[in-house]
Amino acid sequence: MARATEFMRVTDLHAFYGESHILHGLDFVVNKGECITLLGRNGAGRSTTLRAILGLTGRRTGSIMINGREAIALAPHRIARLGVGFCPEERGIYSSLSCEENLLLLPQLGSGGMSLDEIYEMFPNLYERRHSQGTRLSGGEQQMLAMARILRTGARLLLLDEISEGLAPVIVQRLGQIIRQLKEKGFTILLVEQNFRFAAPLADRMYIVEHGQIVSEIHQHELQEKHYLLQEYLGV
C-alpha cells in the first residue's frame, strides 16, 4: 500500500567525487505530493545527494527507485526523463540565452507541465524581464527563473538546491509562497536548505544529514518535541 504513494525511494546510496567518498549509505523516501527537506551543516552531503540522484557525481552505488524504475545505472538525461526537475545551487542560468529562451529551452519530460502563461502568472517579474539576457537578471530573478523553467517540463519531482541562499528576506518569503502553491498543484518537492526558518514551515518531513548519512527524521508535527535534535545537529 505504501508503495503506491512512493515517488522516490533511496536505499544505501553511496556516492564519490573521484577518490573521495561523500555519501555513506543514505536511506530515505519521498512520497507523492510531499515536500521533504534535507537539513544539515555545510559539507554534510545534502547537495551531493541531489546531484547523486541525477547522476551528476562520480561513481554511485545503492538503489534509487523513481516512479518504480531503478535509476542508479541510468545516464543523467534518462533520469531526468523519469520526471525529475533540477534547480541547482548555482542556478545554472544560461548566459548566452535570454530569460524567455532559458524558460523555453528545457525539453518536455512528461505531460502536465505548466504553460508559459501560468508560469508568468506565478512569476510576474519574469514576464517583465523576458527579453533580458539571462545573466542580467538580479539574483532573485535568476532564482525564480531557475525554478520556473523546470515547471514547464512536466517534471513531477522537483529537486531544489538552496533556493533561499543569498536572497533578500522579501524574496525568500515569496519563494515560500511559491513552494506552497506548487504543493497545492501536486508537485513532489525535495528541498535542500540551510535556512531552517524557511524550510521548517514548508516541509511535511525533514531528514537531517550528517557525514553523508541520514541521522534523523522529523515529521512536521514532531517539530516541538524533537527540537533538541535540531539544536544538536544544526545549532538552531
Binding site: 551528476l56 538525461h77 533520469i79 541547482p88 544560461y94 528545457l106 525539453p107 519530460l109
Partner: peptide, 13 residues
Amino acid sequence: ENPKLTQAFGINV
C-alpha cells in the same frame, strides 16, 4: 555552456 546541467535537464548530451 554547461554540459552536465544540460544533460540533467533531459537532453542527451
